[in-house]
Lab assay of single mutants.
Amino acid sequence: MQFKLIINGKTLKGEITIEAVDAAEAEKFFKQYANDNGIDGEWTYDDATKTFTVTE
């Protein structure tokens, strides 16, 4: 399945899409990606669109 991350950071904005087995695997990848890029904010997930959003 495809999952999307929308980044609304103070210094980094954009979107990335990955293939993952389930939402838990996608969330783990996205949170590591955000951590690696210094993004720390509020997370939301929309199951209907398979979209995670992080907002700083």
Rank of each mutant, 00 (worst) to 15 (best):
T17M: 12
L5K: 00
G38K: 14
A23I: 12
K31N: 08
M1P: 03
D40C: 11
T53C: 03
D36F: 14
V21Y: 11
K10H: 04
G14T: 07
V54W: 02
L5Q: 00
E15W: 10
I16F: 05
T17P: 05
G14W: 12
L12Q: 09
G38V: 10
F52K: 00
F52V: 01
T11F: 06
F3K: 00
I6L: 13
E25Q: 15
K10E: 03
Q2L: 12
I6K: 08
I16T: 10
A24G: 10
T11S: 10
W43N: 00
A20Y: 11
A20L: 07
Y45R: 03
E19H: 11
G38Q: 07
N8M: 04
N35F: 13
L12N: 06
E25H: 10
N35L: 13
D22S: 07
E56V: 08
D46S: 15
E15R: 06
G41V: 01
Q2Y: 06
N37Y: 08
D47Y: 07
T53H: 08
A20F: 06
F3P: 00
N35C: 04
K28V: 04
G9P: 05
M1H: 11
A20T: 13
D40T: 07
D22T: 04
T51P: 00
A48T: 10
D40W: 03
A26Q: 00
I18P: 00
I18G: 04
V54Q: 01
M1N: 06
W43G: 00
K28S: 15
G9Q: 09
A48C: 06
D47H: 09
F52T: 01
D36K: 13
Q2C: 02
D36P: 01
I39V: 08
A48V: 11
Y45E: 01
I16A: 09
G38T: 14
K4F: 10
A26D: 00
L12D: 07
K50D: 05
M1Q: 13
Y45I: 03
A26S: 05
G41E: 01
D40M: 12
A48N: 13
T53Y: 11
F52D: 00
N35P: 02
G14R: 13
E56G: 11
L12I: 10
V54G: 00
A23D: 13
K4P: 00
D40K: 09
F3D: 00
I16W: 06
E56R: 08
G14D: 06
E27W: 08
E25N: 15
T55Q: 10
D46R: 05
G14P: 08
D40A: 12
E25I: 09
K10Y: 13
E25Y: 11
D22I: 05
G9R: 09
T55D: 05
E27M: 10
F52R: 00
D47C: 06
T11E: 04
T17R: 08
T11V: 09
F29V: 13
F52H: 03
V54T: 06
F29I: 07
T11M: 07
D46K: 07
K13P: 12
K10F: 06
T53S: 13
W43A: 01
T17A: 13
T49P: 03
M1G: 11
G9A: 10
N35Y: 11
K13T: 08
D36S: 12
I16L: 15
A26C: 02
Y45H: 02
D40Y: 13
E19K: 03
F30G: 02
A23L: 15
A24K: 12
I18E: 04
T49M: 14
T17E: 13
A24H: 04
G14F: 12
T53G: 03
T11H: 11
I39G: 01
N37A: 13
E27F: 14
E25G: 15
T44V: 12
T11L: 06
N35M: 13
W43E: 00
Y45S: 02
E15L: 11
V54Y: 02
G38L: 13
T49Y: 15
D22W: 07
T11A: 04
A20E: 10
N35D: 12
D47A: 12
E25C: 02
I39L: 08
